[in-house]
Design a protein around this nucleic acid. Structure first.
Length: 201
DNA sequence: CGTTCGATGCACT
DNA sequence: GTGCATCGAACGT
């Protein structure tokens, strides 16, 4: 691992959203900032696809907030949720086809101390497997906020890369934390992985 | 273990 | 004014 690092090209995202959601498992979300490099392997994603998906932010049609969903693929869509958590998505499919993959959990690979400081302050006793468990937690650990909204994921400072991490076995299930569209099994995750959000098994 | 519930800000109707 | 793609502290069992 680490000798063959490749940033995912824009065409990676210009595909069917469910395919992208599955292929993002095992890829590495990297944030390079003045605080250093933090990175983690993606172990959980959710697909939000089009205006016909009631849980997708594009459901009401184009608005100021969801504009990135209608733009080019390979761009970060970040927004504030519940007034206190930032959530990061990768925009997928072509322009005019509003869809994205929400990144829900990471396995920390680099910058664990920086993550710990951002999550719980210095001397935090948080386990490594909890640092990026949940979409609001991972953005906090990586220092992602609205500043990173609309950034291209195909170049620094915020990128998704292939570090040659083995993806592991992937499972599909209903999306978490939404009240509509729960019938669509569009959550993709590494079954049994300690860093995946939700109830542990 | 389990479940409930309050915090908190902004986009949208 | 309402409703969230959440989290974790504070309970109950």
């Amino acid at each position: 691992m680490g000798r063959n690092r490749r940033v995912l090209p824009r065409r990676f995202y210009d595909r069917d959203t469910l395919t992208v959601a599955a292929d993002l498992i095992g890829k590495v979300l990297v944030h390079r900032s003045a605080s250093g490099v933090v990175a983690g392997a993606i172990v959980e994603t959710e697909a939000y696809i089009g205006e016909s998906d009631p849980a997708c932010h594009a459901a009401p049609g184009p608005t100021k907030r969801n504009a990135p969903l209608y733009g080019p693929p390979g761009v970060a869509y970040v927004y504030l949720n519940y007034g206190m958590h930032y959530l990061v998505n990768a925009v997928t499919e072509g322009e005019g086809s509003p869809a994205a993959v929400l990144i829900r959990a990471l396995e920390p690979l680099e910058g664990v101390e920086a993550m710990r400081t951002r999550r719980g302050g210095r001397g935090s006793t948080l386990e490594v497997s909890s640092l990026c468990r949940g979409p609001g937690n991972l953005t906090k650990a990586l220092g992602i906020s609205l500043v990173q909204n609309r950034l291209r994921l195909t170049e620094p400072p915020l990128s998704i890369e292939d570090w040659g991490v083995a993806a592991g076995e992937v499972a599909w299930g209903p999306r978490i934390g939404i009240r509509v569209g729960t019938d669509r099994p569009w959550r993709c995750y590494v079954a049994g992985h300690a860093c995946v959000s939700g109830k542990r098994t």
